[in-house]
């Protein structure tokens, strides 16, 4: 079982993860705005921008993150943003959003100028996570593990990052054993999804290029975190 320290770490991560959500006024637009490719693109980039702010707030609260060198903090955020956002989007699709909204969001993504070459693998990934029946604890811990990944580009003090990631991996491994006793491979399968997330990360720049319908601009925060000119 989890030790008392591990229990409190888990509750802290969960609480911090659940506190952050995209503001209602943005999710409400999902239902209201019309369905042009242009409107969908603008709405999805507004949601993504809010998503990044949510991600930064969650990251700032990760145990030990504030002790890291500032440049390494930025490098961790930039290196993990795409993967953490894919995880969060998968959770939104698989768990959080009321059923009707999921269809609307999917409809908007499919009609926003993004190429099917990227949309199909994205929804297949969401489905693959749904099949894993991930719990909220697993989503929050896995997101924290993704953010505190030491082998990101430009990280100077990898060792310090590794020391922050290790306890989270230990809690996640124990949690998988407790929550999925029927599936001893569950933890390994979760880690396997991290490899898939890396692939999305590698192809993200191309996806963005294909998504820029009528040379729309991304917001300054998205340009910075996604390294888009």
């Amino acid at each position: 079982d989890l030790t008392p320290e591990q229990q409190s770490l888990l509750h802290y991560i969960m609480d911090s993860y659940n506190r952050q959500c995209i503001p209602q006024y943005i999710t409400r637009k999902l239902l209201q705005e019309d369905f042009s490719a242009e409107e969908n693109f603008l709405l999805l980039t507004e949601m993504a921008t809010s998503h990044v702010q949510v991600l930064v707030e969650f990251t700032k609260k990760l145990p030990g993150f504030q002790t890291l060198d500032h440049e390494d903090q930025i490098a961790l955020l930039k290196g993990s943003a795409v993967e953490a956002m894919f995880l969060r989007s998968a959770e939104i699709f698989n768990r959080k959003m009321p059923h009707g909204h999921t269809d609307l969001l999917e409809e908007r993504i499919r009609n926003s100028g993004m190429s099917d070459d990227y949309i199909t693998p994205m929804f297949n990934f969401y489905k693959s996570l749904e099949e894993l029946k991930m719990t909220q604890e697993e989503y929050s811990l896995l997101t924290a593990v993704v953010i505190l990944t030491p082998d990101r580009q430009y990280i100077k003090d990898k060792e310090s990052v590794e020391k922050l990631q290790e306890p989270l991996l230990e809690v996640l491994q124990k949690l998988c054993q407790v929550q999925h006793p029927e599936n001893p491979q569950h933890f390994a399968r979760l880690l396997g999804r991290l490899t898939e997330l890396r692939t999305f990360n590698h192809h993200h720049a191309e996806m963005l290029m294909s998504w820029r319908v009528n040379d729309h601009k991304f917001t300054p925060l998205l340009c910075e975190i996604w390294d888009v000119q």
Binding site: E57, T59, K60, K61, Q73, I74, L77, K78, P220, L221
Partner: peptide, 16 residues
């Protein structure tokens, strides 16, 4: 160079 947006967000107090 002026503080990047990310740096500003990181340095701002944690908001709920």
């Amino acid at each position: 160079d002026e503080l990047s947006l990310l740096k500003k967000l990181l340095l701002s107090p944690a908001n709920v």
